[in-house]
Write a protein that binds this DNA or RNA. Structure first.
Length: 566
RNA sequence: UGUCCGAUGGUGUAAUGGUAGCACUGCAGAUUUUGGUUCUGCCGGUCAAGGUUCGAACCCUUGUCGGACAACCA
């Protein structure tokens, strides 16, 4: 874990409900006082901010209770899973700043053990092979309000099931012709207890076990037993598995005794406003090219946030702040933005960048002269030092920083108005030029030579301070401005519409004529800056040695923009 | 008309029978060579009704509302 000093001090208030459970268990010396968690992703997609909540929870719990946390790939469905995803998941967890215990674990490593246990269940009359068609089984399962009916194969002799199960494994049967079912209770009000399927036949290559298996265990059978094998004490998952818990416990009843037994605990998943969070929907955005890949900076994926310029600490702080509970929640995406700003404010060097440049000529400044202005790199960090920024007769300022007919509260440049060029001189607008379309092309100013930063005339009050870049020293860049991907707070919340109907057409604006101060020349991908007065930005991996490409992570808070919009 | 889970300011989350607090947001002000940061203040909440109790957000009852469950997905 990097930079623990910056980490928010843990728990100045009460415990969350999972911490309460763990402390209670510790007090009772349950499981010999061990605390062992696990993060169990299915490698069928990229990790997103919702997973980050779970990662921070599980690894964080292990850390605070001096326990362990495994990374376990829940790879029991070869139809959807790929090594590409395994790799990205490991990269993302490491990047977030967590280390898994020992090595990456895989549910697929337990296939043999799971098979043996399944055989044991059959022998004990707790499981049977069902030869009915899928539709038949589904029909017999009934509905939540009505009990199901038993399969005609339910009470076949264990020897018969044993033989069939072995032949299933040997590949004698086609996909979908047979399943192994647990014999629980077809009349249970809990659908998951109505003789759930433990194994299905799937003649499918697996990314780790290759073609060794043609039967694969279902989630309910694989997951709890994997926890059991790994010695997991607290199996933390999301709310939708609540109804699975009786089955989780039922399977464990067949194998475990009171000396050690993992416990499933469910918490409410993260929902973010203006965002979709399901892997299926994110996949859809990628496949249908609404975004440019899983790591598109507009994606709520960890890799997208990384490319956007988020830091691991900012995400961890976010996870701390949102808390953990069982009620459904929607977190304002603004809280995530607050968390990056908070961290970037501490660490990001300030630089000058003009995104929409307009030329200013300082008419009384000597032609050909260049002054090196000393600028502080980060007022929040005295150790960040300072740098020299060249100033000359022609500079760029932001088009937005000039108004021909400004309102009284506009503290920037306008005809006859004085503004300070940050770190340089106070200038006064004497004149401006426009083209035939009325578009501003050039501003003429005079400067006060005594007003140089630090000089005698510099202390006088001037309403506005602008950033600037010297024309002859400027480097060009492409800057990508991102906005939320969806224009609706809850893109999933409309029964009559698809979430993609709410994609924000302005979620990406590309600016190609941006001017940066020369110190940015050596910047490399993932370098982060505050473009003074604009926001936090980072260098994108699309940059080339001759062309910088820069992403806007998040704009600065801007009360003026908010006010002037009204 | 089943089972399970949940309900505290706009959004989250604490208080575990004893002053409803914190964060984000919003609003107002101070500081500021970033309309940033920082600082100060303000607005704003226990789903409802009964019950237990000296005392209830917390315990009990009933109701209301919301969510989850009917893949050979996880």
């Amino acid at each position: 874990m990097s930079d623990p000093e910056n980490e928010k001090s843990r728990k100045n208030s009460g415990l969350n409900f999972i911490e309460s459970i763990i402390e209670e268990d510790l007090f009772n010396n349950k499981n010999q006082g061990r605390v062992h968690l696990r993060f169990p992703p299915e490698p069928n997609g990229y990790l997103h901010i919702g997973h980050a909540k779970s990662i921070c929870l599980n690894f964080g719990l292990a850390k605070t209770y001096d326990g362990l946390c495994n990374l376990r790939f829940d790879d029991t469905n070869p139809e959807k899973e790929e090594v590409e995803y395994v790799d990205s998941i490991m990269e993302d967890i490491s990047w977030l700043g967590f280390e898994w215990h020992d090595k990456p674990y895989y549910a697929s490593d337990y296939f043999e053990q799971l098979y043996d246990w399944a055989v044991q269940l059959i022998k004990n009359g707790k499981a049977y092979v069902d030869e009915q068609a899928q539709e038949k089984i589904s029909e017999q399962r009934g509905v939540p309000t009505r009990p199901g009916t038993e399969s005609p194969f339910r009470n076949r002799p264990p020897e018969e099931s044993l033989g069939l199960f072995a032949r299933m494994r040997d590949g004698e049967f086609e996909n979908g012709t047979m399943v192994l079912r647990a014999k629980v209770d077809m009349a249970s009000p809990n659908m998951h207890m109505r003789d759930p399927i433990m194994y299905r036949i799937l003649h499918q290559h697996h990314h780790r076990t290759a073609d060794k298996w043609c039967i694969y265990p279902m989630y309910d059978w694989a997951h709890g037993q994997s926890d059991f094998i790994e010695g997991i004490t607290h199996s933390v998952c999301t709310l939708e598995f609540e109804l699975h818990r009786p089955l989780y416990d039922w399977f464990l009843d067949q194998l475990a005794d009171e000396r050690y037994r993992p416990q499933q605990i469910e918490f409410a998943r993260l929902n973010l406003s203006y965002t979709v969070m399901s892997k299926r929907k994110l996949l859809e955005l990628v496949r249908e090219a609404y975004v440019n890949g899983w790591d598109d900076p507009r994606m709520p994926t960890i890799s997208g946030l990384r490319r956007r310029g988020y830091t691991p600490l900012s995400i961890r702080n976010f996870a701390d702040r949102i808390g953990v509970a069982k009620r459904n929640n929607v977190i304002d995406v603004g809280l995530l933005e607050f968390s990056v700003r908070e961290h970037l404010n501490q660490i990001a060097p300030r630089v000058f960048a003009v995104l929409d440049p307009v030329k200013v000529i300082i008419t009384n400044f000597p032609e050909g002269e260049v002054e090196q202005m000393e600028l502080v790199n980060n007022p929040e960090d005295p150790d960040a030092g300072s740098r020299r920024v060249p100033f000359s007769r022609e500079i760029y300022i932001e088009r937005d920083d000039f108004m021909e007919d400004p309102p009284k509260k506009f503290f920037r440049m306008g005809p006859g108005r004085e503004v300070r060029l940050k770190g340089a001189y106070i200038v006064k607008c004497e004149d401006f030029e426009k083209d035939e379309n009325g578009r501003l092309t050039e501003i003429h100013c005079s400067y006060d030579p005594t007003s140089k930063s630090g000089g005698t005339g510099a202390s006088r009050k001037v309403k506005g301070t602008l950033h600037w870049v010297s024309v002859q020293h400027a480097i060009d860049a492409e800057v990508r401005l991102y906005d939320r991907l969806f224009s609706d707070e809850d893109p999933n919340g409309h029964n009559d519409k698809d979430f993609k109907d709410f994609i924000n057409p302005e979620s990406l604006k590309t600016l190609t004529n941006c001017k940066l101060e020369p110190s940015l020349k050596s910047a490399v991908p993932e370098d982060k800056f505050q473009f003074q007065r604009l926001g936090y930005f980072c260098v994108d991996k699309d940059s080339t040695p001759t062309q910088l490409v820069i992403n806007r992570t998040v704009p600065l808070r801007d009360p003026w923009a908010k006010k002037s919009k009204r």
